[in-house]
Amino acid sequence: MTYVVKDNCIACKYTDCVEVCPVDCFYEGENMLVIHPDECIDCGVCEPECPADAIRPDTEPDVEKWVEFNRKYSEIWPVIVTKKDPLPGAEEMDGKEGKMEMFSEKPGEGG
C-alpha cells in the first residue's frame, strides 16, 4: 500500500503533511503536491494532517490513476520538506469540483 495526493490539493497546496513525513517523499508542483509511491513507507501520518482531505490510500476505489500521476510528477518536481503557507484562496478552493482544469505541470520551489 502507498498514499497518494489527489486533485483536491490543486489550488490549495496545504503543506502540513510534509512536516510529519518521516521519509521526505513529498514533491512540490506550482499548485499541488504529490507523493512518490515508491518512497512512501505507508505509515499514514500525513493523511490526517491534510486539511483538504487530498491524501488517500491506494486501496480506495479509482485511486490507481493517482498512483501513476503521483509517480510521474514526483520524478520531475523538487522534494519539499518544509511547511509553507497554502496558496491564496485555498479555503475557497477546498472541495471544488473540476480542479484538474487548473492543474499546472510546472514545478514548485521545493525546500
Rank of each mutant, 00 (worst) to 15 (best):
Y3W: 09
V4N: 09
K6C: 11
D7C: 12
D7E: 15
N8M: 10
C9M: 07
C9R: 04
I10N: 00
A11D: 15
A11W: 03
C12P: 05
K13I: 01
D16E: 04
D16V: 03
C17F: 03
C17Q: 09
V18C: 12
V18Y: 05
V18D: 13
E19K: 15
E19Q: 15
C21A: 03
C21P: 05
P22V: 01
P22A: 14
V23N: 14
V23G: 15
D24E: 14
D24F: 12
F26Y: 11
Y27M: 01
G29W: 15
G29V: 04
N31W: 10
N31K: 10
M32G: 00
L33Q: 02
V34L: 05
V34E: 05
I35E: 03
I35F: 06
P37E: 00
P37I: 05
D38M: 13
D38S: 06
D38Y: 15
D38P: 02
E39Y: 10
E39K: 11
E39R: 12
C40K: 04
C40Q: 01
G44L: 08
G44I: 04
G44A: 09
C46E: 04
C46T: 05
P48I: 12
A52R: 01
A52Y: 11
D53A: 14
D53P: 00
I55L: 05
I55W: 03
P57D: 01
D58T: 08
D58L: 09
T59L: 06
E60C: 10
P61D: 00
P61S: 01
E64C: 04
W66L: 04
V67K: 10
E68C: 05
E68T: 07
N70Y: 00
E75C: 07
W77T: 05
W77P: 02
V81T: 15
K84I: 07
K84E: 11
D85E: 12
D85T: 08
D85R: 11
L87K: 14
L87M: 12
P88I: 14
A90Y: 12
A90H: 12
D94M: 15
G95K: 03
G95Q: 04
G98N: 10
K99M: 06
K99Q: 07
E101V: 10
M102S: 08
F103H: 13
F103E: 05
F103W: 04
S104Q: 09
E105F: 07
K106C: 02
K106L: 08
G108D: 04
E109W: 02
G110M: 00
G111Q: 08
